[in-house]
Design a binder for these strands. Structure first.
Lengths: 159, 159
DNA sequence: TATTTTTAGTTAGCCGACTAAGTATCCCCA
DNA sequence: TGGGGATACTTAGTCGGCTAACTAAAAATA
């Protein structure tokens, strides 16, 4: 709670974020995916046919960001866009077979990442970490002033 | 330790990272800085005159990344580059007065971020979190196969 | 009905991370 | 001493966040 301890914990946090980012990229490289793609694949593997706006909200990213990502993934053959017959403005996003395949492989390496992250955590440690991460999420969500908060059991985050 | 609990803790972790990223940018916006700049300013405010290669190692980023960042910061007037008189290949980086000023303001908002992150943490929570973050850092550093590990009390991370 | 507003999606440009390739300088060794 | 390799930095291009400005289509309103 003192400035120094907060400072030190915060420095550790930055380091963990950086290392997590690096390891994430290394692992995704082995299945030929980029870091932004897993959350999208997971969301689509659960429910197909979202319109882009809904998908962007689900992933907590802007529509413009999603447009570019989808363009790449369509070119890679992971997803396809189909015009909504009732509303010409809307394009709905579907997972291809290739996308479904890579999604399975992706979930394996993400499991590896999870295992690596929380190695040597006792069951109590895991529970505690869950509580403390939850507190941090609530703290930050309030600070950011989230209109549509991250849900506890939604498909936010990644997997 | 079970797949499900690891999964849930990992989802929380991704959410926290995302929110932290967003809040960080919001706060830095108020002092006119970009997210990559604080670590650099902090490092320079401690010791001036690093050569770019050293600085890149210190910040755990690639030299190419640093070159671009320094170009922007030089244009903004936060830093200046001076040729090393003994070796024409080397350019050394110095903080300007303007850079020193913004560094002070930056450290205030980073303190705000720290406070927000760890609100409602008991002293025990803070200690526990420190231990668990430390474990995660060690886990990930090993997985990444870091040749030059992040130090506990270095100027890595941010501040 | 005609016009205006709202909505969905795209495009362009910025930031920071990366790799790969290029240039310039220094150093070492034959 | 000359040449080849190492070192320092830059440039170009990619990815994923963002904002701002644009187009096209639907909806709402006058």
């Amino acid at each position: 709670m003192t400035p120094t301890s907060n400072d030190s914990i915060s420095r550790l946090f930055f380091q963990v974020i950086r290392l997590h980012y690096q390891r994430n990229q290394m692992l995704l490289d082995t299945v030929g995916l980029y870091p932004g793609q897993p959350p999208l694949l997971v969301a689509l593997s659960r429910v197909d046919g979202w319109k882009q706006k809904e998908l962007a909200n689900l992933l907590h990213i802007k529509a413009a960001t999603l447009t570019v990502m989808l363009g790449r993934m369509e070119k890679s053959g992971f997803i396809e866009r189909r015009q909504d017959p009732n509303d010409q403005r809307i394009s709905r996003v579907y997972l291809t077979d290739k996308g479904r395949d890579v999604c399975v492989k992706m979930q394996e390496v993400m499991q590896t990442l999870r295992d690596e992250c929380f190695q040597h955590f006792s069951p109590e440690d895991t529970l505690t970490m869950q509580r403390l991460f939850g507190q941090m999420r609530d703290n930050l969500a309030q600070a950011v002033g989230l209109e549509r908060p991250f849900k506890t059991d939604g498909c936010n985050g990644q997997e």
